[in-house]
Amino acid sequence: MPDLDTLPRPDLDALYDPPAERIQKAVLDRLIDFHRDYLAVATFFCLATGSTRGLDASPRGGPPGFVQALDDQHVAFADWPGNNRIESLRNLEQDDRVGMLFLFPGLDIFMRINGRARATTDEALLARLAEGGKRPKTATVVAIDEVLFHCGKAINRAGLWRADRHLDRAALPTPGRMVESLNAAAQGRSVDAAAAAQLDTHYSHAVRHNLYG
């Protein structure tokens, strides 16, 4: 295994050109109409947080517009049930810095928001962010430091939206198989195929139907 401390370090300024002036000017500290247009159709982003406990990147999704602009310098979104690790929320108690990376299905462009965030139980905001007839337990409000669009070369390198790049579910271990294999290894027994199938049935139903707790 490589020792990270002994790997040669690059001279970044020698290897990479500085960003073009138009790129630098496109980084703003507030939302303008373009950003609001994209937020109105956004259905997915990844939230980056950190603390002395470590770093976390958490997926967030919802119907178009689930991240709402409160004004030109603040956005908000609900926290919905996941695996209950709530690492993002716990990180924010110690370090309020966040990064948001939005993907737009079918488009080769990203939008990024960097800022400072706070989790809240403000009743009016929770009511505003309700989905599926449910009110979230908490919401997160982000004060924007930077907002920018990011080119979609990574999307095209990955062929992310191409149907021929979609994966065959049968080609990889299922969630139930992975959980059962870990349980079996911890208990010193063989994998129970029936238990794995039962876990898969539960998982498939939960991720499609138990979206709001």
Rank of each mutant, 00 (worst) to 15 (best):
D79C: 02
G115C: 02
D168K: 05
G82A: 10
L92K: 05
D108I: 00
G61Q: 08
L7H: 05
A154N: 02
Y38A: 04
L4K: 11
S88Q: 02
F104T: 04
F110D: 03
C46G: 12
L39Q: 09
D56K: 06
Y16F: 12
H35I: 03
D3K: 07
N183A: 05
N183R: 04
T174R: 02
A76P: 03
D56P: 04
P175I: 11
S88W: 03
G159Q: 07
L4D: 06
T52L: 12
L89T: 01
G213M: 04
R36D: 08
R208K: 15
D17S: 13
Y16M: 13
Q24Y: 14
F44A: 15
V98A: 00
V179R: 00
D33S: 09
P81M: 00
R118I: 01
T201M: 14
R177H: 07
H202V: 15
N84G: 06
R85L: 08
W161A: 04
H166V: 10
N210V: 10
H202L: 14
D72Y: 01
M1W: 09
A42P: 05
G115R: 06
L31D: 04
L199A: 10
L4N: 08
R30L: 01
A20L: 14
P64S: 07
C151A: 09
A69F: 00
T201R: 14
I113W: 00
A14Y: 08
D33T: 08
A195V: 01
E131Q: 15
T49C: 05
T43C: 13
L92C: 07
A127S: 15
L199P: 04
R116L: 03
F149Y: 07
L92R: 05
C151Q: 06
R128M: 11
Q187D: 11
G132T: 00
G176D: 03
F77C: 02
E93M: 10
A158F: 13
K25Y: 12
K153C: 13
L125W: 10
A195T: 01
L28C: 03
R177K: 07
R85G: 03
S190C: 09
G213Q: 07
G50C: 13
R97C: 09
K137T: 12
R208I: 15
L160A: 04
P175S: 13
A57Q: 00
K134V: 10
L129R: 02
R169P: 15
L47G: 01
D3C: 06
L199S: 01
L125P: 10
K153V: 15
F66T: 14
I86N: 12
F34E: 14
L160M: 09
R162G: 10
G133S: 09
A127V: 11
V67C: 06
A14N: 07
A14V: 08
L160R: 09
Q73K: 14
A185S: 09
L211H: 12
V67R: 02
L12F: 13
L92G: 04
N84F: 02
A130C: 05
P10V: 01
D95W: 14
E87I: 12
P173N: 02
